[in-house]
Every structure is written in C-alpha cells, then in structure tokens.
Write a protein that binds this DNA or RNA. Structure first.
Lengths: 135, 135
DNA sequence: TTCAAATAAGACTAAATTAGTCGTATATCA
DNA sequence: TGATATACGACTAATTTAGTCTTATTTGAA
C-alpha cells in the first residue's frame, strides 16, 4: 500500500539518467535499460510518455533518442508521476473519473474530506522535490 | 499507485464508528459491517488487528464486541495504517525486510535517499491527522 | 447445560492491478 | 536499402489486494 509503481521508479531513474547525460547529444532507451538493468520496453514507454508531455524531445530513426527539454531544477517528482501514472489518488472517489456526488460507501465522504487534504499535502511534497535533488 | 488499500479504508471507517458510538457499551463487527455496508469478515479482521495493538479492547462471547481504548484525539491515521498494513513504504528497498546494503537496481540508491525523505514527510502528515478530525 | 452470538485466526479463492513482452509500423541516418 | 531508433497497441504473466470459508473458542442467558 502507498507504494510507488515500478513504472514510476523507472521513470524517475530514466529522468535522472537524461539529466546526468544532458550533454547535447541524445540518449537511447536501450542505453538506459542496459545501464540501469531495467526492462527495455518498459523504459521506452515511460520515455514516450515524457515525450508526449514535452518533458523530453524524442528524435526518431537511427542516431535517435531522447533529450531533456527542461532543466533538472525545473522538473519535480509530481511532473514525473503525473505523466506516467493516470491516477495517484489515495482513494477511488478522488479519482478523476469518479462520480463526485455519490460514494460507494455510506458515510465514506466523512473520511474523504480529511483524506483529500492529506492528498493535497502529499502532492505538494512531490512537487517540492526536484529532479536536481536526485542527481 | 499510491492508493490506500480497502483494508486501510475500512480500518479508518471502523475506527470512526467506534469513536462515534463510544458510549460505554461495545460495538460488534457485524454492526459496523451492516451500517457501512462493508464485508463483515474483512472488518472483523481489521478490528482484531486493532485489538492486538491495544487500540481497542475486544470482549469475547455473547454481548461481546469492541471498545476504543484511547480518545479519538489521541489516535492518528498513522496509528491506524501501521496496525493494519505491514508495509506502507514508497519502495521495496525501504521495507523492513529489505536488504539495506544492496539494491535491486544499479544506481537505485541515488533515488532512494530523497524518496526516504519524502516518505518521512508523508508519514508525518498521517501522524498529524487524528481520528477526531474525521468524526 | 446447552444454545446463540460473538471474537480469533488460518487457509483458501477471486478479482484487480501491475509488470513485462511481443509484434508491427514508422522514421531516419549512412 | 539496411541498420537502428522511436511509437504504440495488444497481449500474457506475476503479484497484490479483496473477499470468503471454515473451524475453534469464549461467554451470557434461557
């Protein structure tokens, strides 16, 4: 419970790698996978997510790869988490697709409001931690 | 990801119920299950966990049930979470049974230390939220 | 003393989520 | 045109979480 997914772990590691090797020329998914010994296809997808939110630029074709678009100090853990995870909410009824008016459990909403506050604070913790702090 | 388990949700709800009905006489698992429409066997186990850590007293036999041992303001969410969840750590290598010296991933430990700090802060958020605030 | 109602707890099954793989298409450099 | 990349959807495997079943024990009251 409350654990980060491998997806998020790999995303943080990949972002870190990109930040470290940010020497102009791009880095391939294969390189990251081999260097950190994590599944290639998995990192590749995470990097594709990064490209979609324009955190990185992707260069296709031979000699292609990925380059960070922003400075490590301008990227926070919440940026990384929210690009690779659809939901990172404490409860189901906090999730985007949840029906806000009704709750699965009687009385659930009594516990929901304080939890929403905790959630907000957890997010701000992740927002306060930048990629630079992880290098 | 980062979601509370049903176990924890039910635990918070059960604790809340006990706090509300804390009128001397005890409350049964059946009563909580029916009132909140949550699985009886599941709540029962959560209450047994509470009894083990002496957060509640359990009274066996007919006319038995559970009573809160502490005031709602003296019980925090972290008390509840840590009694019903073996682990609530962000990563595997933070878990109690983890081998602290070696890490599954090369370079993982570079991301581990900042995450441990985040973990510590998350725990303190849960510690700052008391059962009383949820009544 | 026996029945009903409760806790206690381990073993098990089912459901859901997460992790990881496969296959195929497309882009681009040399 | 071949080698080497990204892009991405569909799929399978593994793990975790949720929930159930069963049986034992305790205790109050008829």
């Amino acid at each position: 419970m409350l654990k980060l997914s491998k997806r998020t772990e790999y995303a943080i590691m990949a972002a870190r790698y990109l930040a470290l090797k940010n020497s102009g020329n791009c880095v391939t998914a294969k390189e990251i996978a081999e260097d950190y010994q994590i599944p290639y296809q998995f990192v590749a997808k995470v990097l594709q997510d990064f490209a979609r939110t324009e955190m990185v630029s992707s260069i296709q074709g031979s000699k292609g790869g990925y380059v960070l678009n922003r400075l490590p100090e301008e990227i926070s853990l919440i940026d990384i988490i929210s690009t690779v995870e659809e939901n990172h909410q404490l409860t189901e009824c906090m999730q985007e697709d949840a029906n806000k008016t009704s709750c699965e459990h009687i009385d659930c909403c009594k516990i929901r409001d304080p939890l929403i506050e905790v959630q907000r604070k957890i997010d701000s913790l992740f927002a306060q931690t930048s990629l630079k702090q992880i290098l």
